[in-house]
Computed example of a mutant assay.
Amino acid sequence: MVLMIEWSVTLAAIAFIFLVIFLILTLRKLMETIAETKETLTDARKSVTSITDEAEELIHEANKISDDVKGKMEAVDPLIESVHDVGDMLHDVTSSIKRTALKNENRKTIHTQDKEQNQPVRIKLK
């Protein structure tokens, strides 16, 4: 019986030694993984800092461009309004000519008199 107890204790000691060796190997691998993770996080922080700086510069440039475009649009607004007014005026003149042409008997030709040469001038409308 004593022999059996000795064998059991020996087997338990051997199993414990294998368990300790396995845990040591696992912990070493875990330490390597943690070191790589730390290195990766350090690189990631550097990259994020670099990207953040570039993004801030880009935002500042975009704001400058936006302000420049806004100023130029404000400078062009009076010109656009003037062109719009000219367009309205031309529309009114064209409408007036059309109305005058439709009032005449001959609706396809407008008869006017050239005062200098006393000859009629004809304008054909489509």
Rank of each mutant, 00 (worst) to 15 (best):
M1W: 05
V2N: 13
L3P: 00
L3D: 14
M4A: 15
E6P: 01
W7S: 15
W7Y: 15
T10H: 12
T10R: 15
A12L: 10
I14H: 03
I14N: 05
A15R: 01
I17Q: 07
F18D: 09
V20C: 04
F22R: 04
F22P: 01
L23V: 03
I24V: 14
I24G: 03
I24T: 04
L25T: 07
T26V: 06
L27H: 10
R28L: 12
K29D: 05
L30Y: 04
L30C: 10
M31T: 15
A35H: 06
E36K: 13
E36M: 12
T37V: 14
T37G: 08
K38L: 13
K38Q: 12
E39Y: 02
T40M: 15
L41M: 04
A44W: 06
A44E: 11
S47D: 08
S47Q: 09
T49F: 04
T49M: 05
S50Y: 04
S50M: 07
S50W: 03
I51S: 05
I51M: 02
T52P: 02
D53W: 03
E54L: 06
E54V: 03
E54P: 00
A55H: 04
A55Q: 03
I59F: 06
K64A: 13
I65Y: 11
S66P: 02
S66A: 11
D68S: 12
E74M: 09
A75D: 15
V76M: 13
V76S: 13
P78T: 06
L79G: 07
E81H: 10
S82F: 11
V83Q: 05
V83K: 08
D85G: 11
D85N: 11
D88S: 10
M89S: 11
L90Y: 09
H91N: 15
D92T: 08
D92F: 06
T94C: 10
S95C: 04
S96C: 02
K98S: 11
L102N: 12
L102H: 10
K103T: 10
N104T: 07
R107N: 03
H111C: 01
K115A: 01
Q117E: 05
N118R: 02
Q119L: 08
I123E: 01
K124C: 03
K124I: 04
